[in-house]
Simulated scan of single mutants.
Amino acid sequence: MTKGQAQAKISEAVSKFEIEFMGRGPKQIRTLIIQDLIIVRLKGFLSQSEQKLADNSQGVELLKKIRVMLFESARNYLEVLIKEVVDVHIISTHSDVSTKTGEKIIVITVAENLEDRFDK
């Protein structure tokens, strides 16, 4: 498998996760593998009601809390999906949402340099 193929499969897995556990998938998704990091950037994943909720600071705080709780409750499933693609121990998974841009970033730290594994 090439690096590009692995990145595409991770994007598919994260999109599946977002649809199943967060209620909807992103409009765009991009995955980068950089040594022992997997970085996933999702755009356009907030629903219209979430965008409306983010119009004020209390709504932003509530939205972020809900998204964090949902993500944390399903993190193990996401890690299983990622491990099926890269077959490496996952050390940690981090996520943050920007209500300003409607983007989400997921950073996954793994136990080895993934770039060494791919066909050149």
Rank of each mutant, 00 (worst) to 15 (best):
V14F: 13
N56I: 03
S98L: 06
T2A: 03
T93K: 06
V107N: 03
T2Q: 09
T109S: 14
F118Y: 15
G23N: 11
Q48T: 05
T93Y: 00
G44K: 10
I10W: 05
F71W: 00
S49N: 01
E12A: 15
K52N: 00
Q5G: 08
L62G: 06
K64I: 14
I38M: 00
K52S: 03
Q7W: 02
Y77Q: 10
R24K: 15
G4T: 12
D96G: 07
I33Y: 08
I29K: 12
T2V: 03
R24D: 14
E115Q: 15
I108A: 04
I34G: 02
K16M: 04
E79S: 05
L53P: 00
I39H: 01
L81K: 12
A8I: 02
I108G: 04
V85Y: 01
S47R: 08
F17K: 11
S11H: 02
M69P: 05
K83L: 05
K83S: 10
G23Y: 13
K27C: 04
S47E: 01
Q5D: 11
T2E: 01
D55K: 09
E50L: 07
A111T: 06
K100C: 05
K100S: 07
I39E: 07
V110I: 15
K100W: 08
E20P: 03
I106P: 00
G23R: 14
N113S: 11
F118P: 12
L81N: 04
E12K: 15
G4S: 13
R30Q: 12
F45C: 00
G44H: 10
R24Y: 13
V85R: 04
L63H: 05
M1I: 10
E61H: 03
D96I: 03
I34D: 10
G59E: 01
M22G: 04
D96S: 13
D116R: 15
R24E: 15
S95I: 02
Y77K: 09
S98H: 09
M22K: 09
M22L: 15
S73C: 03
I29M: 09
T93N: 08
S73H: 03
E115C: 06
K3Q: 14
M22W: 01
E79K: 13
E112S: 12
